[in-house]
Simulated scan of single mutants.
Amino acid sequence: MDQIWKWWAKLPKWIRDTIQVVMAMTILLIIYDLAVPPMTHKPYSMSTLISFPFQVILASLWWPFIITSKRVLKQKKKRQKNGRQKLNS
């Protein structure tokens, strides 16, 4: 078990964040897909079974983009702040 945690710690932070969010979304989607269809249409209908994998795939593609854009924005703000400090000095 320790080897798994060592391997996990070696992964880049954005990959760990992506896996964590996708796993959480997967669990929530399973709960949603089991709870909502009885209220809206026949339970375990084909649309629920087909849509679930696409929702998980979409989440795994969308989340790294969000993380990367946030990181780029932070770096840009940091550079701007450092540039202002140099001008003020």
Rank of each mutant, 00 (worst) to 15 (best):
M1R: 13
D2K: 12
D2Y: 14
Q3M: 13
I4N: 09
I4P: 02
I4T: 14
K6R: 15
W7S: 12
W8S: 10
A9Q: 11
A9E: 09
K10G: 10
K10N: 12
L11S: 01
L11V: 01
P12K: 10
P12H: 03
P12Q: 06
I15Q: 06
D17G: 03
T18P: 00
I19R: 00
I19Y: 01
Q20F: 14
Q20C: 14
V21Y: 04
V21H: 02
M23W: 12
M23T: 15
M23Y: 12
A24L: 06
M25D: 08
T26D: 07
L28E: 13
D33G: 04
L34G: 09
A35Q: 08
P37C: 07
M39R: 05
H41E: 09
H41V: 05
H41K: 03
K42M: 04
P43H: 05
P43C: 06
Y44S: 02
M46L: 14
S47H: 03
T48K: 05
I50E: 00
S51V: 10
P53M: 03
Q55N: 11
Q55G: 04
V56I: 08
V56Y: 02
I57M: 05
I57P: 04
L58Y: 07
L58W: 04
A59G: 02
L61S: 02
L61Y: 12
W63T: 06
F65T: 07
I66H: 07
I66Q: 00
I67S: 01
T68E: 07
S69L: 06
S69Y: 07
K70V: 08
K70S: 10
R71G: 09
R71A: 08
V72T: 14
V72S: 11
V72I: 15
V72K: 12
V72G: 05
Q75S: 12
K76H: 15
K76N: 15
K77C: 06
K77A: 07
K77G: 05
K77Y: 11
K78C: 08
K81F: 01
K81Y: 08
N82C: 05
N82L: 11
N82G: 04
R84S: 04
Q85N: 14
L87P: 00
N88M: 11
